[in-house]
Simulated scan of single mutants.
Amino acid sequence: MARWDPNARERLERAALELFVRQGYDRTTVAEIAERAGLAKSTFFRHFADKREVLSGGDALVRLLTDAVAATPPGAGPRQAVEAALAAAGERAFTAERHGAVRERQQVVAANPELTERELLKREALATALTAALRERGTPDPAAGLTAELALLALRAALAAWTARPGQDFTGLALAELAALCEAAAAL
């Protein structure tokens, strides 16, 4: 194998997902993932701590959302900031090209209690990071935390609808979900 392997991380992620779908998460080893990707097992561990991490995407979604919040113009309110974050997710993370892989990942996670628990911990970390990003823009508590939670509820609902029906626009789904949630919260 080559000393330097281009796109090793992506190849490992793709190989892992293919194997998890085909033979199950529990029955797939790190060695099999590395072999499927055409890489050494040691290369796997340069990119991921364990096989659970290969599904996590690292902190990419956290960075994507928080960067979008931070880049929102200064006069925009917290809702506009999270709308920008949801739009960024639709433009970069939940694209038509990635639909099949995202759907398969969701199925693998849902079929494994250990991964489902890890996903819940990741959601909590995402809520914390999004709340902090809103606070940094000057959104006070409890509005920062509430806005972050509403955005994440919209993200989850949009993701469920988007993975169930190919061809839909994730951003449109997410913004519609956020609008419905904001309307429901205002009616309380």
Rank of each mutant, 00 (worst) to 15 (best):
A125C: 04
E114H: 05
E91T: 06
G77D: 13
A101Y: 01
G172T: 07
G100W: 03
V102R: 11
A127Q: 11
R123T: 08
V108T: 12
A87G: 04
R137G: 02
L126D: 04
G167Q: 07
D169T: 03
P113D: 11
A132H: 11
W162M: 01
L121C: 07
A93G: 06
A161C: 09
L130N: 07
A143N: 06
R135T: 06
L120K: 11
A133H: 01
R135A: 08
G172F: 05
Q80M: 11
T116W: 14
R165N: 07
Q107S: 14
P113W: 07
A158T: 03
A125D: 13
Q107R: 15
A151F: 00
A154E: 01
E124A: 15
A132I: 04
T131I: 06
A110P: 02
P78T: 11
K122C: 11
T128Y: 14
D169H: 05
D169K: 03
A93T: 01
L146H: 12
R105W: 04
A143Q: 15
L120R: 15
A89C: 14
A88R: 01
E117A: 15
T171M: 03
L146S: 11
A125N: 07
L120E: 14
A96N: 03
R137K: 13
F170D: 00
E117W: 11
E91K: 15
V102Q: 12
T128D: 14
A158E: 02
G100Q: 12
L134V: 04
G172E: 06
E124M: 13
H99E: 00
G75H: 12
G145T: 05
E119Q: 14
L150C: 06
A143T: 12
G77T: 10
L86M: 08
E104I: 02
R156Q: 14
A164M: 04
E104Y: 02
L134K: 09
P78A: 15
L115Q: 06
A158F: 02
G100I: 03
P142A: 08
E97I: 00
A132Y: 05
A88K: 02
A87C: 03
R123E: 13
L130Q: 06
A132L: 12
A157M: 10
A154S: 08
T116E: 15
V108C: 07
L134I: 06
P113Q: 09
A110M: 08
V82C: 02
N112L: 05
Q107T: 13
A84D: 12
L126R: 14
A132G: 09
R165Q: 13
R103Y: 07
G138T: 08
H99A: 00
L115G: 04
E136A: 15
P166E: 05
L130W: 09
A101K: 07
T116I: 04
L86H: 02
L130V: 15
